[in-house]
Simulated scan of single mutants.
Amino acid sequence: MKTHTPSLPAVSFGRRPHLLAPLLLCCLLLAVPARAADPAPQIKPCVACHSVERICRNVDKGDAFWTKTVKRMIANGAHVGPDQVPGLVALLANPDHDKVREILNCPSPDSLKTSAAAVPTAVILAHPILMILTLLLALWVTWQGVNRARFSHFKQKTAFNWKGHTRYGLVVMGLWLAGAVGGSIVSDMLHGIPDAYELHEGMAAVMLWLIAFGGLSGLYMDRKKAKRTLLPILHGAANLLLLLLALGQLVTGLVILGRLLAA
């Protein structure tokens, strides 16, 4: 007699829309902690990406803030239909802030401040320190790439450390990927500061695509050495843009760090 074993229901893990880049990043996303259950059906799409505490910290921001935020979340992949937008914005932007906190089952404002303050300063500083060191290494890798371009395209005699450029270039890419995941985790620990993090996270999303292209194209050229013209140019252009975004991350990161330490 055959027995029928019921299949287990599929488990759904929270996603981070701005980290849904190339498939090679999926393994890193497993490091992101699972989200708590949502306290209100209207915000299911919100808590699929971040904690409810992050929403609770901003219930007093008003209609303009939440309209912009909901649209940005939809652009990042939140499952909110056009017919759901007015109701969601009306809920989050309700001027009766106490009612909103009750609906969302928010912790008290004082406990939110305490939980953010409980994050050790060493944890907050670890991310920017690592990213600054990575940026310094990235500058050396970029300089080696410039030397390569000078030799290949401008026929100038320069010293080019091929092995170092490839090896440390991959180290930089890996550290930037780790920084994206680590920074996101720290952001959750602090329950997020949307007005400070928006630009920082937006640049990180673009950087993930450039990291994937720069790393894969660099590995391909290292493994399949040949005389090329277009691919090295695209590789160099993408990595220069990546370096500029990393410099922008440094500026916005220092602004965020200043706000956290001053809080």
Rank of each mutant, 00 (worst) to 15 (best):
K2F: 00
S7F: 06
L8D: 10
L8A: 14
P9T: 06
S12E: 15
F13R: 15
P22H: 15
P22S: 15
L24H: 04
L24A: 13
C26M: 14
C27N: 08
C27R: 15
L28F: 15
L29N: 11
V32R: 04
A34P: 04
A36Y: 07
A36K: 10
A40E: 13
A40C: 09
I43D: 13
P45L: 10
P45C: 11
A48F: 08
S51G: 15
S51N: 11
V52D: 05
E53K: 09
I55Y: 03
N58E: 14
A64C: 07
T69V: 10
V70A: 08
V70H: 01
I74E: 08
I74Q: 13
N76T: 05
N76Y: 12
G77S: 10
A78E: 06
V80P: 02
G81C: 04
V89P: 01
L92Y: 06
L92N: 04
A93F: 04
D98V: 08
L104C: 08
L104T: 07
P107T: 04
S108D: 14
P109Q: 07
D110F: 09
L112T: 07
S115R: 14
S115Q: 13
P120E: 02
P120W: 02
I124S: 03
I124G: 00
I124R: 07
P128C: 03
M131Y: 06
T134A: 11
T134Q: 05
T134V: 09
L136I: 13
L137N: 02
A138P: 00
A138Y: 10
L139N: 05
W140Q: 07
V141K: 04
V141I: 11
T142E: 00
W143H: 12
W143P: 01
W143M: 13
V146C: 05
V146L: 11
N147F: 06
R148S: 15
R148Q: 13
F154M: 10
Q156A: 11
T158Y: 02
N161E: 03
N161V: 06
K163M: 04
G164V: 03
G164L: 04
T166A: 13
T166N: 12
G169V: 12
V171E: 03
V172K: 02
M173W: 05
L175M: 15
L177D: 14
G179I: 01
G182P: 05
G182L: 03
G183F: 05
S184P: 00
S184F: 14
I185E: 01
V186Q: 07
D188F: 01
M189W: 09
M189N: 04
L190F: 02
L190A: 04
L190P: 01
I193W: 03
A196R: 13
Y197G: 12
G202E: 03
M203N: 12
M203V: 13
G214E: 08
L219P: 00
D222M: 01
R223K: 10
K225V: 14
A226L: 03
K227A: 09
L230C: 05
L230E: 09
P232K: 07
I233A: 12
I233T: 12
L234T: 12
L234F: 15
H235G: 08
H235S: 09
G236K: 00
A237G: 10
A237S: 14
A237I: 15
N239Y: 03
L240H: 08
L240D: 00
L244K: 06
L247Q: 02
L250A: 13
T252E: 11
T252C: 05
V255F: 08
L257I: 06
L257W: 06
L257Q: 02
R259V: 00
L260K: 01
L261D: 00
A262E: 09
